[in-house]
C-alpha cells in the first residue's frame, strides 16, 4: 500500500488534508470518489493502495480454512509417542549416543509374549531396567497370564523374548523374571 505515515502532513491525514480513515470508509462502502479525490494525486494514490488492501482482506475473509490432510492422525501419533519419552535405556555410547524408550522396549517384550505360538499367553505388566554399568543389557520383569490347562513352555518363552529383543532393539537380557498368573478366559 502506497501509504507512509512519515510523509503524512498530520497523523491520519494526507498532504492535501484529507483523512485516510474517511477514504478507507469510502472504499469499504463502495461509494464513488468525490470530485477532490478524483483529481487529487495524493488521494488517488492512497485510494489505489486502500482498494488493494480491501481486496486482499476480503479474499482472506472468504478463504476456506481446511486442516492439512492427516493432521488428526499426526496429533494422535504424537500424543502416543509423547508418553514414551520418559525413561530410556542406552543403546549406543560414545560421541553419537543413542537410547531407546523403556516403554518401547516393554512393548517389544509384551509383543514377544502375546505372539508366542499357541496363543495362550498374554503379557500384562512389564518393567524394564538397564543393568547397572552396562550399555545394551537389560533386566526385565513381566507378568504373564497363561490360559488353558497346558503348562506353558517358560524356557521357550524366555528364549523367544531374548531373540525378539535382540532382533528388534539390539538389547540383551541379563535377568528375565516371569511372574506366571493363571487366567480363565483368553
Amino acid at each position: 500500500m502506497a501509504l507512509n505515515r512519515g510523509r503524512l502532513a498530520r497523523p491520519g491525514r494526507l498532504p492535501c488534508g484529507r483523512n485516510v480513515d474517511a477514504l478507507w470508509e469510502q472504499v469499504r462502502s463502495g461509494a464513488a470518489p468525490d470530485e477532490h479525490v478524483s483529481s487529487c494525486p495524493h488521494c488517488r494514490t492512497a485510494l489505489e493502495g486502500l482498494r488493494a488492501l480491501d481486496a486482499a482482506t476480503r479474499d482472506l475473509a472468504h478463504e476456506e480454512v481446511t486442516a492439512p490432510p492427516g493432521l488428526l492422525e499426526r496429533i494422535m501419533r504424537v500424543v502416543r509417542t509423547e508418553a514414551r519419552r520418559g525413561a530410556t535405556v542406552p543403546l549406543v555410547v560414545g560421541p553419537d549416543p543413542a537410547h531407546v524408550s523403556t516403554a518401547a522396549v516393554a512393548a517389544v517384550v509384551r509383543f514377544a509374549v502375546d505372539t508366542a505360538p499357541g496363543g495362550r499367553l498374554r503379557a500384562r505388566r512389564c518393567r524394564v531396567q538397564p543393568a547397572a554399568g552396562t550399555v545394551d543389557v537389560l533386566d526385565v520383569t513381566v507378568e504373564v497370564v497363561a490360559f488353558g490347562e497346558t503348562e506353558p513352555d517358560l524356557d521357550g518363552l524366555r528364549r523367544r523374548i531374548g531373540s525378539v529383543l535382540a532382533a528388534h532393539v539390539g538389547l540383551r537380557l541379563r535377568e528375565l523374571r516371569l511372574d506366571l498368573v493363571r487366567g480363565e478366559n483368553p
Binding site: 514414551r84 530410556t88 549416543p97 543413542a98 518401547a104 528388534h168 532393539v169
Partner: peptide, 29 residues
C-alpha cells in the same frame, strides 16, 4: 546425518544423539 551435514552444508556435527521412541513390530515368524 554427519555425512550429509558435512557434504551438503559444510557443517561439522560435534554430537548426533538418536532417541528411539517407538518400535514397529512384526512377529518373528
Amino acid at each position: 546425518t554427519r555425512d550429509a551435514l558435512e557434504r551438503q552444508l559444510g557443517v561439522r556435527a560435534d554430537r548426533v544423539e538418536v532417541s528411539v521412541v517407538d518400535v514397529a513390530l512384526i512377529p518373528p515368524e
